[in-house]
Computed example of a mutant assay.
Amino acid sequence: MAAKAKYDWEALLKEYLRSDCTSKTQFAESKGINASLLRRNTADWPSKSKSKSNSNKKPKRKVTAKSKSNKNEKVAPNQERKVTGSELALINDEGNLTEKQKLFCFFYVKSYNATQSAIKAGYTAKYPSEIGWQLLQIPKVRDEVQRLKNIKRRSIMISEDDIVERYMRIAFADISDFADFGTEEYPAVDEHGHIMIDGNGNVKTRKRDYLEFKDSNDVDGGLICEISLGRSGMKVKLEDRQKALRWLADYFCMNPMNQHKIAYDKAVLSLRERELKAKEW
């Protein structure tokens, strides 16, 4: 017949959990049990601190997608960017967005960088790329981004025809619109600086080339790519004509009925004629 256990360890465990003892040793002393014996037989007992916290803890609430979103909305130190009153007016919609979601939309439309927009809006900097991506998956956030994009597009007031006209101006810009140049005659002088006279009493002349740039108020600065001043004088470089011509050619192939097509064809013809005359000269 098996010997009966001296102690009922299950009953002692329940007593231990209900007691105010902070350790197994303290509990053993209060019950008059050898502390080493108790520890050997109660290796599977939870620590008192853990059992206390578990006994007092409320049932764990399931974390929903909404609560996760709120958790991510911790303000990143020194990251939140102040928004002016005029800017805030653009994002004060009634789309049921949080303040940080509104700020994210505002910054995203300006940069189209989800990571930096999340940081500037005040989200935690630990996982900004993930947060930015998650925000863009929310339908109401996407709607707000589209709304702000429409406002931006209307404020720019630029149309497809405006772009075509700009490329046409680049493609067919005439250098004479920016500078006066040619050949001129000037009085010839001798080695002493005196004007030279021929046998008939007329002033002798010589020819020289000249180049004079027009004042900035008289030219379209949008057609100039670069201006530099070096030892040899000033140099003006226009925007890339060939690039603009290629863009226009591709555009009119896709849009042959565009209202600018006839003007483009005439301008190309005029440009080719000028190039042929220059070669003949």
Results as ranks from 00 to 15, higher is better:
residue 138 I to V: 12
residue 199 G to R: 09
residue 135 L to Y: 12
residue 178 F to N: 08
residue 114 A to M: 05
residue 162 D to N: 06
residue 104 F to R: 02
residue 220 D to M: 07
residue 206 R to W: 07
residue 161 D to T: 08
residue 234 M to N: 01
residue 126 K to A: 08
residue 178 F to M: 06
residue 170 I to T: 10
residue 225 C to G: 13
residue 180 D to H: 06
residue 113 N to P: 04
residue 159 S to Y: 10
residue 218 D to T: 11
residue 237 K to H: 11
residue 106 F to Y: 15
residue 189 V to L: 02
residue 102 K to W: 05
residue 129 S to P: 07
residue 174 D to N: 13
residue 239 E to R: 14
residue 103 L to P: 00
residue 143 D to Q: 09
residue 120 K to I: 00
residue 235 K to P: 01
residue 113 N to L: 07
residue 170 I to G: 02
residue 132 G to S: 06
residue 103 L to G: 01
residue 195 I to V: 15
residue 143 D to G: 01
residue 131 I to K: 03
residue 172 F to W: 07
residue 125 A to L: 03
residue 111 S to C: 01
residue 127 Y to K: 13
residue 169 R to D: 11
residue 136 L to D: 00
residue 214 K to R: 15
residue 110 K to V: 02
residue 129 S to Y: 08
residue 165 E to L: 13
residue 129 S to G: 14
residue 234 M to A: 14
residue 198 D to L: 11
residue 191 E to Q: 11
residue 196 M to A: 08
residue 222 G to K: 06
residue 207 K to R: 13
residue 224 I to G: 07
residue 177 D to E: 15
residue 142 R to L: 10
residue 157 M to I: 04
residue 213 F to H: 10
residue 212 E to Q: 15
residue 170 I to F: 05
residue 147 R to K: 14
residue 131 I to P: 01
residue 162 D to G: 04
residue 165 E to I: 08
residue 107 F to E: 07
residue 154 R to P: 02
residue 161 D to S: 10
residue 172 F to Q: 07
residue 221 G to I: 09
residue 144 E to T: 02
residue 214 K to D: 12
residue 163 I to A: 14
residue 103 L to D: 02
residue 143 D to S: 07
residue 150 N to D: 13
residue 208 R to C: 14
residue 225 C to D: 14
residue 174 D to G: 03
residue 195 I to N: 10
residue 131 I to E: 00
residue 211 L to H: 08
residue 165 E to V: 07
residue 163 I to Q: 11
residue 159 S to Q: 12
residue 156 I to V: 13
residue 144 E to M: 08
residue 190 D to K: 06
residue 165 E to Q: 12
residue 136 L to E: 03
residue 111 S to R: 06
residue 112 Y to E: 13
residue 236 V to L: 15
residue 187 P to V: 12
residue 232 S to L: 06
residue 200 N to F: 13
residue 227 I to L: 13
residue 225 C to L: 15
residue 157 M to V: 04
residue 173 A to E: 04
residue 136 L to C: 04
residue 149 K to N: 10
residue 196 M to K: 12
residue 233 G to C: 11
residue 230 G to C: 08
residue 199 G to T: 09
residue 154 R to C: 08
residue 101 Q to F: 00
residue 158 I to Q: 15
residue 182 G to K: 08
residue 231 R to A: 12
residue 157 M to K: 14
residue 178 F to D: 03
residue 143 D to C: 00
residue 149 K to C: 07
residue 165 E to H: 09
residue 176 S to E: 14
residue 214 K to T: 10
residue 121 A to E: 01
residue 164 V to Q: 01
residue 157 M to T: 08
residue 170 I to Q: 03
residue 148 L to S: 04
residue 132 G to C: 06
residue 212 E to V: 15
residue 224 I to W: 11
residue 209 D to H: 09
residue 123 Y to E: 05
residue 192 H to P: 02
residue 208 R to P: 06
residue 165 E to R: 14
residue 168 M to D: 04
residue 164 V to G: 02
residue 150 N to H: 14
residue 183 T to S: 09
residue 230 G to I: 09
residue 101 Q to P: 00
residue 203 V to D: 03
residue 171 A to K: 09
residue 174 D to S: 12
residue 104 F to Y: 08
residue 132 G to I: 05
residue 159 S to A: 11
residue 204 K to E: 13
residue 109 V to N: 00
residue 142 R to E: 10
residue 221 G to R: 11
residue 163 I to L: 14
residue 225 C to R: 15
residue 186 Y to A: 05
residue 216 S to V: 12
